[in-house]
Amino acid sequence: MSSTPPLLASCWTHAGDAAPQTEDERSPFDILERVRAVAESGWSGIGLVHADLIETRRTIGLQRLGSEIRSSGLEFVEVEFLGDWWTSGKEREASDRVRRELFEAAEALGAQTIKVAGKMFSRDVDLSVMATEFDLLADEAREVGSRIAMEALPFTNFSTIGEGSRFVTDVGNSNGGIIVDIWHVYRAGNTPDDLLTDMNPDYLFAVELNDALEPSPPYEQLWDDTVDQRRLPGEGDWDVPRFINVMRELGFSGPWGVEILSEEHRAKSLQDEVTSAIRAAQSVFAAADRDGV
């Protein structure tokens, strides 16, 4: 029997025809219907993106959404996505607005995790400034009952999990850690076993599963690859069961996120999105159990 742990459906896994870094990131699906579909299909948690949270606040209100999440039995919540949190000037003004709104939503919904990232498509950043600001960001998140989980993406200044892990370790704030997405591992040219030496388990806050085909595309095509070409866990070329067992060896116990971003997934109905993703996740956990024996 598979020991499938609690699973969290990331915001894009149940968003329908919506994608990050587009003009309008709002899902075409009703937010309450999404919560119910996620809960009824067996998930233990849900992720929500900033654009949908702002639309929710404008319409039914965050308290209504929080009530629905709690009554549905969903235990885990994450909100995203914050960038430019270390900057100044107009960039910082825009980032601070998103920051306030994400913190407001995290508090209202009881979110355990707020996702952030480093500098996109550039390594030109003062790490000492970034470290100071990350420390402050983590402290502020603690005040609303949440934690900061930074994604180390191949197209940011933290291009590998190892770089991101060293950064948060050096900062040393117990409320600021790393989210490890299997996509960011393989597309950075690493393997799951590299994480046994590259990742400080004390700062391993969240994990996300998906899959993809090899070979990896050129750097210039990585963004399109991550947004349009992901596969359900077990339907690509990666050793997802080994990744799961490495995360277990590092001490991670969940909830495990499932983040599916693809043209194929966005074309599905809401029900097909959530059921296909959770069934695929359950299958790779069963395989991980067999491999780990």
Rank of each mutant, 00 (worst) to 15 (best):
P215D: 10
M247A: 09
D193V: 12
F167P: 00
S165R: 08
D84C: 08
K268G: 02
T132C: 08
A281F: 10
D239K: 11
P154V: 01
W12Q: 06
S122I: 08
Q229P: 01
G16H: 02
F134D: 04
F121P: 00
E249K: 14
P241L: 08
D24E: 06
D237Q: 10
R248L: 12
G73F: 07
M199R: 07
L65S: 05
A281E: 09
V258Y: 07
S216T: 14
E273H: 12
A131Q: 06
F285W: 15
H50M: 06
Q221N: 13
E208V: 04
N190Y: 11
G89R: 07
F285S: 02
A138K: 01
L213K: 14
G110R: 08
E220S: 15
D202Y: 09
I31T: 09
E263S: 14
G162M: 11
V35Y: 03
G47D: 04
F158W: 10
F285V: 05
A15F: 04
L7K: 03
D84Q: 13
V284F: 09
I46R: 01
G89A: 11
G16W: 02
Q63G: 03
G172K: 03
V185E: 03
R290F: 11
G16M: 02
T132A: 14
E133K: 14
E143G: 08
E80I: 01
R248Q: 12
I54N: 10
A19W: 11
V38W: 06
Q229S: 14
T156C: 07
L48Q: 06
L32C: 09
A188K: 01
D224V: 08
V77D: 07
G162E: 12
D181G: 00
W256H: 08
F81D: 01
W43F: 15
T59Y: 09
P241D: 08
R248N: 14
T13V: 04
K119Y: 00
A288K: 05
I161R: 06
R70Q: 14
L204A: 03
A105F: 06
L7F: 13
R147Y: 00
D211N: 09
R187I: 01
I54K: 13
A15W: 00
R64D: 14
